[in-house]
C-alpha cells in the first residue's frame, strides 16, 4: 500500500511516501511562512526520488493539526484535493499523535510522553500519551505554565514537539510529525471520516458594538 503523508501543522513542511510501513522518500522544508510554496514541490520531489507517480497512490494521510491555521490549511486542502483528484481516501490524523507515534517507534520511551507544539500567543498545543502511544489527555491549547502544573499528575517521563523547553523533561525526537508517524497514527484500513482541521480556537472576531459617532 503506497501512502503519501503530509503535515503543515508546524514550520516544518513535510511530505513523504510510505509503502507498507517503509519510508521511500521524504522532503522536509523549514519555513513557517511558505507552506503554500513548499508543499507541492516537496511532494513532487519525494515522488521523483521514490520513483512513483501520484496516480499510483493508494491513500493520503494528513496532519489535521492542531497548528497555526494558515499553514495547517495548506496541508489539509492539498490532501483533500489530491485525494479527490486521484480517487483515493484521505485520512486526517492528529499531528501531535503523529509525533507521539514516531517517538514510540523510536524505542527510547520508558513511560508517559508529553507532546507540545507552538500555538503562538505564548501558548502551546499539547497532549499526553502512554508509552504505547495511546492518548491520555488533550488536545488542549494553554500557556506552558499551566501545562507544567498539569504534567506532574500525568507521570510523563519525556517530552517531544517544538515547544518542550522549560518542562524539565528529557526531550525525545522527532520535534515535528514525520511521514512514518503520520501513517502510524492513521487507521488506514477503515473508511476515513470527514476531514476536519483541529483548530482548538475560534476565529478572532467580535461583532461590532454601537456605531461610533463622527460628530463630537
Amino acid at each position: 500500500m503506497l501512502v503519501l503523508a503530509l503535515d503543515t501543522s508546524t514550520p516544518a513542511v513535510t511530505a513523504g511516501l510510505v509503502r507498507d510501513g517503509v519510508l521511500l522518500a521524504e522532503r522536509v522544508a523549514e519555513d513557517g511562512r511558505k507552506h503554500g510554496e513548499l508543499l507541492m514541490p516537496g511532494v513532487q520531489a519525494a515522488c521523483a526520488e521514490a520513483g512513483v507517480r501520484l496516480a499510483e497512490l493508494d491513500a493520503v494521510v494528513v496532519g489535521a493539526g492542531p497548528g497555526p491555521f494558515t499553514g495547517l490549511r495548506v496541508g489539509m486542502v492539498t490532501a483533500a484535493a489530491l485525494g479527490d483528484a486521484l480517487g483515493v481516501p484521505v485520512h486526517g490524523v492528529c499531528s501531535l499523535d503523529a509525533i507521539a507515534q514516531a517517538v514510540v517507534s523510536g524505542g527510547a520511551l520508558t513511560g508517559n510522553l508529553l507532546v507540545a507544539t507552538d500555538a503562538r500567543r505564548r501558548e502551546v498545543y499539547w497532549a499526553a500519551y502512554e508509552a504505547e502511544g495511546a492518548r491520555l489527555t488533550g488536545l488542549t491549547v494553554e500557556r506552558p505554565e499551566a501545562v507544567a502544573e498539569r504534567i506532574g499528575g500525568l507521570h510523563v517521563v519525556a517530552a517531544a514537539g517544538t515547544m518542550v523547553e522549560g518542562f524539565g523533561l528529557p526531550v525525545l525526537g522527532p520535534a515535528t510529525p514525520t511521514p512514518l508517524g503520520l501513517v502510524a497514527a492513521a487507521a488506514l484500513h477503515t473508511v476515513p471520516g470527514p476531514l476536519e482541521p483541529l483548530y482548538l480556537r475560534r476565529p478572532d472576531a467580535v461583532p461590532p458594538g454601537e456605531r461610533k459617532k463622527v460628530a463630537p
Partner: peptide, 12 residues
C-alpha cells in the same frame, strides 16, 4: 487555500 488546492489538482 485556493492556490494550494489548484496546485494539488494540477499535479494529480
Amino acid at each position: 487555500v485556493g492556490v494550494a488546492a489548484a496546485k494539488a489538482y494540477a499535479a494529480a
